[in-house]
Computed example of a mutant assay.
Amino acid sequence: MIYASQQKILYSLFISLLMLFSFKAMAKSPVYTALFSDIAVSGYDTVAYFTEGKAVKGSDDYSIEYQDTEWRFKNSDNLAIFKADPAKYAPQYGGYCAWAVANNDTAKGDPLQWTLLNGKLYLNYDADIQSKWLKDKEALIRTADQNWPGVIQ
């Protein structure tokens, strides 16, 4: 049996959650992070894509706040490189899936599905989407550049 006071609490919680998700849907962060997280690129070191050619997990021991989001790196050298020019090492479109942005939408960017092209890092949603992306990435980049940042506003 639910008492009137419990019903009011449950109703308040429901309304609060509904408002939270409605607000989240209205305006998206310029940097993709997982739900209930403020960590960019799922904690992967964005500099490592450029220097090592692979996805490498970062550490909370080497982190910085950039664009109101925490960015992690595997070591102090990569952290220093990022600090010197964060825009160069941050993924395009805030780490959202580049293919989705080209299609005037947003989706999570998977740090294991990535491409470096002309000195820029692009993430994709998954391997299937990345295969579509790779077939025509130059044209998709031109379209995504036109769509960004409108897709998050």
Rank of each mutant, 00 (worst) to 15 (best):
F21D: 09
A127K: 14
L134S: 15
T33Q: 00
S12V: 10
R142V: 15
V56M: 06
D110F: 07
F73H: 03
G119Y: 13
D45T: 01
L121D: 05
I141L: 05
E65K: 10
T106C: 00
Y122N: 02
K120P: 06
A127G: 13
Y93A: 07
I141F: 04
K24H: 03
K120Q: 12
L13K: 06
F50C: 05
A4D: 14
C97G: 05
K108F: 11
Q6Y: 11
R142S: 15
P149M: 03
Y32S: 03
K8I: 00
E52R: 13
N147W: 06
L10Y: 13
K83L: 05
G94Q: 11
Q146I: 14
Y32V: 00
G58N: 07
R72G: 00
E138C: 09
Y49H: 01
D145E: 13
L79S: 06
L20Q: 10
L79F: 01
F14W: 07
V47L: 11
A25L: 12
G150F: 02
A34M: 13
L17V: 08
A107T: 04
V151W: 02
Q67P: 08
N103Q: 14
L134H: 09
S76Y: 03
K54L: 07
L17T: 06
A139N: 14
K28H: 14
Y93G: 08
C97P: 11
P91K: 06
L123A: 06
V31R: 03
A55T: 08
Q130F: 05
G58A: 00
Q67R: 12
Q67F: 02
W99T: 00
E52K: 15
W148F: 03
Q130N: 04
R72Q: 06
A80G: 10
